[in-house]
Design a protein around this nucleic acid. Structure first.
Length: 589
DNA sequence: GCCGTTTTCGGCCCGACTGTTTTCAGTCG
């Protein structure tokens, strides 16, 4: 019995194979094979479904980038735990080289050279050994490397240790970008500046902060950028681009173009990489070549560069509708744009209520209480322009309260909410966020449920049940008629813990049949349902609700993060129930 | 090794910067 490989581990394996091919093939003839393995690895990493499950259903070939050859190898991997072909490609390569490739600036060739020359072969302690030898000046002695390379490797090793591989949460990256924008705008050479990359695409986590600048004086802009007060180190600087490291360890990349070609720069630097590649291939089939500078007509005698001030003009030149940044992941958006079938994405202004709020009204919960009372939260909801809201404190602790106490507490809560209603400030729903216990029971007596308008049911414990047990548990919890919403469905905490394992086929089918709502939780380390699962839900016509899970007033402003996730999942207004006016919304409950 | 709005063969995105090798390879996004 061999260990189940996760998508991430499979992606790693394919990247190693790509690296091996990079060393094997002398010459450019297998460049495309290398690219194919890398592309397959990326694709697997972004896959919604576990590859193993797809293989069992015979659907491996549905994953873009996986063709007959790699599908066959993966089949062997799932059956036997290893792939003979991969083994033979990698057998005479030291395993340490794949470890070295984690260090920025070290690719396949340098990694291999380091292993050979420094005689480091095993993965164990490889980085530590590399650091020791670098400090002894052994790297500069290797042909093709010098003192700069040695210093760079040492520095990058150090930074890797300090920062790790963790990506930034969206608000963190946003605030770094905001601060840099303020700095950049201090010089008149900067005519315009925008945060781009994954930040603009509103990905849940951000690797580096990317900033574009429109300017006719790029050198001045780069100089100014290099003087950013929070700069820790200059990574590189050229005529149009520069990268720095800032306090906290984040890398900031800058690109400058004159205003006449700013549209092409926006498109290029927003990415994603895969969107860019797909867009360039699309253009190439039409005899056009794209870059951050503009568009060239190929096959003409003197290919002239055409520039674009706006992204809209840039996309239009290709015969495409402008594509929302959130959609630019090469998952069908180019084709949709070509056929004028892009979704009309939900917007923050469409949201008419928040249904996951924790007030300070005490009902002896087993988890955390909110900080502010009903009236304060209602007032905040009013200021956000909402028509309705729902209070959903955690259920009372099962061990700390008797059934009668629970009933008394919840009667009191119901009365308090009734009073708010009579004040006619808002349409207020009386809910509760109820734990689904490991055996699938709800952590609330049935008589108490009768006092509520709705329940959000959530998993807050036993995250490591097997997929089938976890699925059974959740479906049992959701089967109560008043359990309308499945709260933060995967339970993931970004950079902290993986989500629970669920059979999504079954969960989706159940939600579809029984009209259950999936929550998109806006809390920025949850962003749960994740965007790729939102996309699946949208395809199946399953409705969702975007909530903040607020525990205090200012949390209620985080709704936009949930909206970002919905947009990345191609959700339109109709897919999200809390865009409905009260009259229609209340029918659901 | 993958893939198809000219193709089941013959293509495969495009450019940046660094360090070191005096003309370019390696790495990155």
């Amino acid at each position: 019995m061999h260990k189940n490989m996760t998508n991430l581990e499979i992606a790693e394996l394919l990247r190693s194979v790509a690296a091996a091919y990079e060393l094997k093939g002398k010459g450019p003839f297998n460049r495309f094979k290398i690219g194919a393995y890398q592309k397959a690895a990326d694709s697997i990493e972004h896959s919604t479904m576990e590859l193993k499950d797809l293989w069992e259903e015979g659907k491996l070939d549905q994953v873009p980038g996986i063709g007959s050859a790699i599908a066959k190898y993966l089949g062997e991997l799932f059956k036997t735990g290893k792939v003979r072909h991969f083994h033979s490609v990698m057998q005479d390569l030291p395993s340490a080289m794949f470890t070295f490739m984690q260090v920025p600036g070290i690719g396949a060739k340098i990694a291999y050279k380091l292993c050979q020359e420094l005689k480091i072969h095993e993965e164990k302690d490889a980085l530590k050994r590399l650091e020791e030898l670098a400090k002894l000046g052994k790297i500069r002695e290797i042909e093709g490397l010098g003192t700069e390379s040695e210093a760079g490797i040492l520095r990058n090793l150090q930074e890797l240790k300090e920062r790790g591989a963790a990506r930034m949460l969206l608000p963190v990256a946003s605030s770094i970008a905001d601060d840099i924008l303020v700095w950049l705008k201090k010089t008149p050479a900067v005519l315009r500046a925008d945060p781009l990359g994954s930040l603009r695409r509103h990905v849940a986590t951000v690797g580096d902060v990317d900033i574009s600048v429109a300017s006719d004086k790029p050198r001045e802009v780069i100089e100014h950028f290099k003087n950013y007060p929070k700069k820790v180190r200059l990574i590189e600087a050229g005529p149009h681009t520069s990268s720095i490291l800032v306090t906290g360890g984040a890398q900031v990349d800058l690109m400058v173009q004159p205003p006449v070609s700013y549209g092409a720069l926006l498109a290029h630097f927003t990415g994603s990489k895969h969107h860019n590649i797909a867009l360039r291939e699309f253009a190439l089939r039409r005899g056009l070549s794209l870059s951050e500078y503009g568009i060239k007509k190929l096959r003409t005698h003197n290919p002239e560069l055409k520039t674009y001030r706006t992204e809209d003009e840039f996309y239009r030149e290709l015969g495409l509708d402008w594509i929302e940044p959130e959609l630019r992941e090469d998952t069908g958006e180019i084709e949709a744009s070509y056929h004028h079938k892009l979704p009309k994405l939900v917007k923050l202004e469409d949201i008419k209520g928040d249904f996951h709020l924790h007030s300070s009204f005490s009902i002896h919960t087993s988890h955390d209480e909110g900080l502010h009372n009903f009236a304060e939260m209602v007032k905040k909801a009013e200021s956000l322009g909402y028509e309705y809201l729902g209070f959903s404190e955690h259920n009372p602790s099962q061990s700390g309260t008797t059934k009668n106490e629970v009933l008394t507490l919840l009667k009191r809560k119901k009365e308090a909410i009734e009073k708010l209603k009579s004040a006619k400030i808002h349409h207020i729903f009386n809910g509760l966020e109820v734990d689904i216990t490991p055996n699938g029971k709800l952590a609330l007596p049935n008589e108490a449920v009768d006092l509520l308008d709705y329940m959000i049911v959530s998993v807050h414990s036993s995250f490591r049940l097997s997929k089938s047990e976890q699925t059974k548990r959740v479906l049992a919890g959701l089967s109560h008629p008043k359990a309308k919403i499945f709260g933060h469905p995967t339970g993931r905490r970004l950079n902290k813990r993986e989500g629970i394992e669920l059979d999504w086929e079954k969960i989706f089918a159940f939600c579809e049949e029984h009209k259950k709502l999936l929550e998109i939780n806006s809390w920025y380390d949850r962003l749960d349902l994740p965007d790729n699962l939102v996309r699946e839900a949208v395809k199946r016509g399953i409705k969702m609700i975007i909530n903040t899970d607020s525990h205090q007033l200012d949390h209620m402003e985080l709704m936009r993060y949930g909206v970002f996730v919905a947009r990345r999942g191609w959700a339109e207004k109709d897919d999200i129930v809390n865009t409905l006016p009260y009259i229609e919304f209340k029918e659901i409950f």
